[in-house]
């Protein structure tokens, strides 16, 4: 375990020593404050309370979407940059298996996503309290955390997808491109029966709130199952290819 932790530390340092590392954090602190201010000054009665603002903003339809985009951008380079910089050669000729190395990269992606989520949640909550106050209190901290959970599912699925695409394509640009395209079309709904087996309509579990469903015939349990299947599929494909690929 100590060995694996050191691999994760390596990956985290590679990520965090980039000069652009803090931009994502800065963006996710400034944006909720700015959006809160704008909404407050244009339509002050749109949100009844701070927690309501936070619970809605943190969903994949709000600032949660930007959070996911930033996580995709961060994830896209973690494998592909090793190839494009040529550092993959030194990385793989160590007494560590390729599985361990890739797993440490995935854990780092999750840590990165977690850290961004915490920062965002705090910033959004603070912004909500600042501009809308604690008044009304129809919604509480529990609802905010539920939104964070919904968005985390959405975000981790896209991060895992980007992680796999990065391994398959070894190109940062293509990875970001495909993932962003996926993110964009994920909001489209095709009213055909097969579409419920596609990843996209299952991504936003918040759609089941209040008894709704993204498509007729879909349930929360079905979506969770579909997400688990896709998650494992992405990881399996990524690890199999990374383990077997010749580094030429």
């Amino acid at each position: 375990m100590h060995k694996f932790n050191r691999l994760v530390l390596n990956e985290w340092l590679k990520l965090s020593k980039k000069r652009t590392f803090f931009i994502a954090y800065g963006l996710l602190i400034v944006m909720p404050l700015a959006i809160g201010y704008m909404v407050h000054s244009v339509a002050g009665d749109m949100f009844a309370s701070g927690p309501q603002f936070a619970a809605e903003m943190l969903l994949p339809t709000g600032i949660g979407q930007i959070l996911s985009i930033l996580v995709i951008i961060g994830t896209a380079g973690i494998v592909t940059k090793e190839y494009s910089q040529g550092t993959i050669k030194f990385l793989l000729i160590r007494a560590r298996s390729r599985t361990a190395i890739l797993a440490s990269k995935f854990v780092t992606v999750l840590l990165y996503a977690l850290s961004l989520t915490v920062v965002t949640a705090v910033a959004v909550y603070a912004s909500g309290m600042l501009w809308f106050g604690n008044g009304g209190a129809s919604l509480g901290i529990g609802d905010v955390l539920t939104s964070v959970l919904y968005n985390s599912v959405y975000m981790v699925m896209f991060a895992t997808m980007a992680f796999m695409i990065g391994i398959l394509t070894t190109s940062t640009g293509v990875t970001i491109g495909i993932s962003m395209f996926g993110l964009t079309i994920s909001n489209l709904v095709i009213f055909r029966d097969f579409y419920k087996y596609v990843l996209f309509p299952n991504l936003n579990l918040a759609a089941y709130e209040g008894g709704g469903a993204p498509l007729p015939g879909m349930t929360l349990g079905f979506s969770i199952l579909m997400l688990a299947v896709y998650f494992l599929l992405f990881l399996l494909a990524g690890f199999m290819v990374f383990r077997r690929r010749d580094v030429a």
């Binding site: 340092l13 590679k14 020593k17 980039k18 000069r19 910089q85 040529g86 550092t87 050669k89 030194f90 000729i93």
Partner: peptide, 11 residues
């Protein structure tokens, strides 16, 4: 060292 030595240039 395989071909050119490549490092993480930002570090």
């Amino acid at each position: 060292i395989i071909e050119n030595p490549e490092f993480y240039s930002h570090m």
